[in-house]
């Protein structure tokens, strides 16, 4: 018997048949469309149609227009603010749920309470802020009844503030979840030991708790960033068209069949998001931490 005969054939694997449909689907309907955005951003746009003749016109239009440039900055500003508000508002909740509640059932119940709003329509959740923030809205009525203000605050609705409030409420849970998860994994003995050594809570928090929760913060920040950067509906519903994010520009441009310019904005959005995620991943090596 020759050597070649004695080499067993590797078992015929069905792995490729199992993975192919999903991988092909994603390649065709996720990777190809995104690549196409880049390609079409260089196409020639006329009033009524778009042609695959490569040009930089749409890019020049974008960077030559104050409206578009300012929408880029509005997007970045709102993203940063919402990132900070979700973190500041979410962290104490995560601290309570993940670290202070020793009872597993209770912390699960609290997390479920946080997640329940996601079972209603996203748009309804956005819309629900209107009767809250309006001139005759719940907040103004409560504040007036309490005698804190005499005149209703009009700046609550249809401003950048209302967009930020709405987004914070919708996305804060994505910050709470990962942080609470990381905090829940902290070995209580470490904190106990530090306390025995005479460290106060502030010191323990700075030296132990916060560093250990950092991977959760990064994951939460990535979730919130991706969603806020791609947002347009909240801005459309709560700003009265005063706040224009990159997403809103894309919607308007597609609405008027300006595909090339919409694609330019799409590419810019993709780049911004890539940079943001890459930046966060540099802070913490997630593969090692999780």
């Amino acid at each position: 018997m020759s050597v070649a005969d004695t080499a067993p054939r590797p078992r015929k694997s069905n792995t490729w048949w199992l993975i192919a449909p999903g991988a092909i689907w994603m390649a065709l309907f996720l990777v190809a469309p995104i690549a196409l955005i880049v390609y079409v951003s260089f196409w020639t746009q006329t009033t009524f149609k778009i042609e695959p003749t490569l040009t930089l016109t749409s890019w020049k239009t974008f960077f030559g227009s104050d409206t578009y440039i300012s929408s880029l900055f509005t997007t970045l500003r709102i993203w940063l603010i919402v990132l900070v508000t979700t973190f500041v508002i979410g962290y104490p909740t995560a601290l309570f749920v993940g670290l202070f509640i020793k009872n597993k059932t209770l912390s699960t119940v609290l997390l479920v309470i946080c997640v329940i709003p996601f079972w209603t329509s996203f748009l309804i959740r956005v819309l629900a802020w209107r009767p809250m923030l309006g001139k005759e809205g719940a907040i103004n009525i409560i504040l007036q009844k309490a005698g804190i203000i005499s005149q209703p605050i009009e700046a609550l609705l249809f401003t950048e503030l209302s967009v930020i409030i709405g987004m914070t409420q919708i996305y804060v849970v994505f910050m709470v979840g990962p942080i609470a998860f990381m905090l829940g994994r902290i070995d209580p003995n470490i904190i106990e030991a530090a306390r025995d050594l005479g460290a106060g809570f502030g010191r323990i928090f700075r030296k132990i708790i916060f560093p250990l929760s950092l991977p959760g913060v990064v994951v939460g920040a990535i979730f919130v960033s991706v969603m806020v950067l791609g947002e347009f509906a909240t801005a459309a519903a709560l700003s009265g068209r005063k706040v224009n994010l990159l997403g809103n520009i894309i919607v308007t441009q597609v609405g008027s069949l300006k595909w090339a310019l919409a694609s330019v904005v799409g590419v810019i959005l993709t780049i911004v998001m890539g940079l943001v995620i890459a930046g966060f991943l540099r802070i913490v090596d997630l593969k090692r931490e999780l």
Partner: peptide, 21 residues
């Protein structure tokens, strides 16, 4: 990563890309 990308990429981008396609 190819699969998980699908839940990370915002809807405006997949929506726009698929419409272009």
């Amino acid at each position: 990563y190819l699969i998980v990308l699908g839940m990370m990429v915002p809807g405006v981008l997949t929506g726009l890309g698929t419409s272009l396609l």
